[in-house]
Amino acid sequence: MNTHFARALCALVPLALAQSALAEGAAGEAVAPSGDLIVVTPVSLHPAAGLMNEHTHDGGEFMIGLRYTRSRHSGANLSGTEPIADAEILAAGYTVRAREMTMDMVMLDLMYAPNDKLTLMVMPHWMRHEMTMVGIDPMNAGAGGMDQAHHGLAFGQTMTHSTQGFGDTLVSASYRMANSPTFKAHATLGLWLPTGNIDRRNPDGTFVHYGMQSGGGTWDSEPSATVSGQLGAVGYGVQASYRWRCESRNASGFAFGDRASASGWLSYLVDNGFSLTSRLTWEHEGQILGEYSGPHKNASPSDGQENYGGSRVIAGLGANIALPFGGRDRPQIGVEFGVPLFQDLNGVQLPEDWRASVALTKTF
């Protein structure tokens, strides 16, 4: 009961923030020293390429965008905030651990505003995961060879495997609550459709690591609230969101944990077509619930549902560039590069090294 209450409370926080922002925005509008309203240049308001649902559109506008994100994990595994030695991982019952992993995401953004208040979005995803495993058992000299599911990796021996396919699809509706030249606020309700694959298997028929499935397999809701504005050449914004897994397990027997996120950003307008951005993000994801309903391995931490989730604080720097063609609504390119400042991970996991995003958008 307490868990469900906490989830519901977290899901309502973004909407409460947006309502507060509406009250503030209605109190007044910033003006330039001359008394004229400061004209917002859209390129200065976007927090670069790494954030979704951060803006809305005027009635009748249509936007198409393509976004690519890559994240990389490597190095010594972490348990909580501290590195954990291979000997400790072995003592915990694992003979193999992850050495490095990359995740690639390609997202198509389709946005349409039927009127000035409402903006609709559909965002299908394509995912690719690649992971390299390494044997950590000194007693395994490799005489028996290696099986396809990395149970038989000799000490120091590595194996790289990958999965790819369509991920889940985000459908959302954003409602404008304030929209002045210097202050904007909107609330968004998103629904994640379970269109991604959740039954990828190894050559021997066992399920792959949980984190290498393309989708989550559950219907998820994700409310969020976004506030942004501009003071002269400086843009600012904050966003809070909560992704609630509406089902306790998917068709394969498990469900990823709920995910909460909060971001704050500043941007500086260098000229009418170029801005620099900085962003600080807090993320938290719960542990996986349930477990695979079919055969699966337990040789590495990546095989255990207790070794997923945790908290991170990410610092990002980026830029937005309006291309010199296309009339009033010029195409825009956004880039962002982020590195973790803090990581507190459940169980035993690879730490994240960095993440990078590139986005191209055009409004019609």
Results as ranks from 00 to 15, higher is better:
residue 37 L to D: 07
residue 216 G to S: 07
residue 301 P to V: 07
residue 165 G to H: 02
residue 191 L to Y: 02
residue 336 E to T: 08
residue 51 L to T: 04
residue 149 A to Y: 13
residue 173 A to I: 06
residue 183 F to A: 09
residue 247 E to R: 10
residue 318 G to T: 01
residue 200 R to V: 10
residue 79 S to C: 15
residue 166 F to G: 09
residue 316 G to I: 05
residue 307 N to F: 01
residue 190 G to I: 03
residue 7 R to W: 08
residue 43 V to H: 01
residue 353 D to G: 02
residue 253 G to V: 11
residue 309 G to P: 10
residue 34 S to F: 08
residue 27 A to C: 08
residue 91 A to G: 09
residue 286 G to E: 08
residue 319 A to M: 00
residue 296 H to Y: 04
residue 302 S to W: 12
residue 93 G to M: 10
residue 162 S to T: 08
residue 316 G to T: 09
residue 46 H to I: 09
residue 362 K to V: 10
residue 265 W to Y: 14
residue 264 G to M: 02
residue 349 Q to V: 04
residue 37 L to P: 01
residue 99 R to E: 12
residue 160 T to I: 14
residue 147 D to H: 03
residue 321 I to Y: 07
residue 27 A to F: 03
residue 305 Q to I: 13
residue 268 Y to Q: 08
residue 61 E to C: 02
residue 2 N to F: 15
residue 196 G to N: 04
residue 6 A to G: 12
residue 307 N to M: 04
residue 75 G to E: 12
residue 140 N to C: 12
residue 16 A to G: 11
residue 67 R to L: 02
residue 12 L to W: 11
residue 318 G to V: 00
residue 313 V to F: 12
residue 107 M to R: 14
residue 17 L to E: 06
residue 5 F to W: 09
residue 231 L to P: 02
residue 204 D to E: 14
residue 150 H to E: 13
residue 209 H to S: 06
residue 268 Y to A: 05
residue 152 G to R: 00
residue 147 D to L: 13
residue 314 I to N: 01
residue 279 R to F: 02
residue 52 M to V: 14
residue 300 S to H: 01
residue 65 G to I: 06
residue 239 Q to C: 01
residue 57 H to P: 04
residue 142 G to Q: 15
residue 91 A to P: 09
residue 146 M to R: 12
residue 297 K to D: 15
residue 191 L to C: 06
residue 25 G to A: 12
residue 186 H to Y: 01
residue 40 V to T: 03
residue 270 V to D: 04
residue 82 E to D: 09
residue 274 F to S: 02
residue 154 A to K: 14
residue 220 D to E: 09
residue 264 G to F: 05
residue 70 R to W: 10
residue 292 Y to D: 04
residue 347 G to N: 05
